[in-house]
Design a protein around this nucleic acid. Structure first.
Lengths: 165, 165
DNA sequence: CCCAATCCTTCACCGCCAGGAAACAATCGG
DNA sequence: CCGATTGTTTCCTGGCGGTGAAGGATTGGG
């Protein structure tokens, strides 16, 4: 995902639009303007004039923050730290988990995705979740259980040391 | 919640500690140093020398971001520093505590939420509050007792021990 | 000031059951 | 035939909700 650059306060409108679309953005703040107060983690700002490296660093941070979301394409699950291939069945399950990345995906929709129109035996889903967990571990993902409700796919929290250039 | 200020890269150690304690912090970046790449929403930085108002603005943003009220959705309790899943019973109790976040929720309404139409044994609520305390500790929340009145759910201020070098 | 009643915290233990894990079988494509 | 994928069965762990009791802390009465 790319990071948009825009001027503040000149492009106030555009900022609102980008916020709506949860599009990461960096505000270039006019030398005379007062900086925006934001709580949105997908937004940052830098006062002009600024060093090129500082702008680069903020763009890069924004990019990483929102690049946290993995992608699934042709049975290949990619994250920041690599990729693994998934068999068809498990790919369909991951697709659902991914569509709710960071939020709860209920058992029902996982079953529907894995076995459309069927009702597989009692713990077949559990077995495949177990296999999925082992498969996605090397690429820094984990599946956490929310008892009686469903499962959450999320990134494992990296150590701060790993973030240093 | 307060925002800690520290020098970068001089206080690298302290930064790691603050990260561990999920304590919001603003790094004051040495004029010659390259800025840190961070994905932690509780961290920000500013290059020295900086306008006072810019520092103020970043501190204020960090403060707001981490003072945000926790949310409860589908049995998942989220705060700035992560989430935990809650069983049904405790979720109902937290719902009430959350509706009065930072203020006193009386025993009566907690009992009504947990056990509608019943009067459970004398200390059942206490037991579950005890379990709740342990459960929400990792996400930086605590429940404080107001004797004879009720209980207050609030954010923990990070332990001083975790902030010492 | 001391004592007793009351409120609160914590612990040990139980029954129940959802979810996790291992072992094995069946199928399929190369 | 071999390895990967998918399904089945079985057993076990650990979470959940509840009880009773011990002990601390606070309050109020004398």
């Amino acid at each position: 995902m790319t990071v948009e650059l825009l001027h503040w306060p000149r492009e106030k409108e555009r900022r609102a639009q980008l916020h709506e679309a949860s599009q990461p953005r960096l505000l270039l703040v006019d030398p005379a303007a007062s900086p925006p107060l934001t709580v949105d983690p997908a937004e940052d700002w830098v006062r002009l004039p600024a060093h090129h490296r500082d702008v680069q660093a903020r763009v890069e941070s924004l990019r990483r923050r929102s690049a946290a979301e993995p992608t699934l394409d042709e049975g290949v699950l990619r994250t920041a730290s690599g990729w693994v291939s998934l068999p068809d069945l498990e790919a369909r399950i991951v697709e659902v988990l991914l569509s709710k990345f960071g939020k709860v995906a209920d058992r029902q929709s996982l079953l529907a995705a894995g076995w459309p129109g069927e009702t597989p035996s009692r713990n077949l889903l559990d077995v495949h979740l177990h296999r999925l967990r082992r498969r996605i571990d090397p690429v820094g993902l984990q599946i956490r259980t929310v008892r009686k409700r469903g499962y959450v796919l999320e990134a494992m929290t990296p150590s701060p040391a790993a973030l240093q250039p």
